[in-house]
Computed example of a mutant assay.
Amino acid sequence: METGLNTQLILDLPIRAALDRYDFLVTESNYAAVEWIDRWPDWPNHVLLVVGPTKSGKSHLSKVWQEKSQAFDHVQGDLAACMPHAANHEPICLDINGQVGDEKALFHLINWVKEHNTSLLITALEPPNAWGIKLPDLKSRLHAAHLVTLGVPDDNLLAAVMVKQFSDRQISVTEDVLRYLMPRIERSFSSVSDIVERLDAASLSEGRAVTIPLAKRVLAI
């Protein structure tokens, strides 16, 4: 089965070194989001929404921005915990995983961020119109924010990510192995991470290189 894989393109994809800590591939699927991270703090209405599927790079870009802006990372719990940071002019990073929860708290946080001339980065799986928001004022605030979408990765980007993840584990793979794997995994970054982890474990366990026969056995498990 042909994948349309362009191995030269994979080799040519630019790797962006962000703050010497986070390396990631910049392609058409994430270029707009990267550009807006770079434009900070020049964000319309002080809020940027980055939307994309699991393992699309949202967390990665969020970490880059946190390092750049020294933002407070709100992991979980009451959004009121963000208010003192906003009042201190600290940028805020917030992940919306599913439902918003306290809509009034998010509405007040957005107002607080704007009032104190700071910034709010919101990452989510889906755009705000899919969050089931009831509060009209919150809908209005989110509509006024700039939204960028991380696109679905194509074969070349997925293969490039796979090569990088193998490289991060100090594993070399041949073009034949890539061509074998690509049509046999789901088109997602999470699937790439999963197969790389499984092949790494099998390679270490058996003391052998990552080859097509090894990949066949791992995929069959």
Rank of each mutant, 00 (worst) to 15 (best):
152 V>T: 14
171 I>Q: 12
10 I>D: 01
81 A>K: 07
197 E>M: 12
129 N>Y: 15
150 L>K: 05
192 V>K: 01
9 L>V: 05
191 S>C: 10
61 L>S: 05
118 T>G: 14
65 W>V: 02
173 V>Q: 07
77 G>R: 12
133 I>E: 04
65 W>D: 00
104 K>L: 11
55 K>Y: 07
154 D>K: 02
36 W>C: 02
15 I>S: 13
91 P>S: 11
106 L>T: 00
74 H>V: 05
149 T>I: 12
26 V>S: 11
160 A>K: 01
210 V>M: 06
212 I>M: 08
121 L>T: 10
58 K>A: 09
178 L>Q: 07
15 I>M: 14
191 S>P: 08
100 V>T: 05
114 K>R: 14
152 V>M: 13
5 L>A: 07
62 S>Y: 00
9 L>E: 07
61 L>K: 06
160 A>E: 02
169 R>W: 06
194 D>R: 13
79 L>A: 07
182 M>T: 02
168 D>K: 14
36 W>S: 05
179 R>H: 13
168 D>G: 13
127 P>I: 13
82 C>A: 13
98 G>A: 04
26 V>W: 09
14 P>C: 12
101 G>Q: 07
211 T>D: 08
90 E>D: 11
106 L>S: 01
111 N>I: 02
71 A>Q: 05
21 R>M: 10
158 L>D: 00
174 T>G: 15
96 I>Y: 03
45 N>W: 04
189 F>C: 02
186 E>A: 15
24 F>R: 06
124 A>V: 13
16 R>P: 00
139 K>V: 07
58 K>R: 15
116 H>F: 15
68 K>P: 00
41 P>E: 09
40 W>L: 11
38 D>L: 04
144 A>T: 05
210 V>W: 02
97 N>I: 03
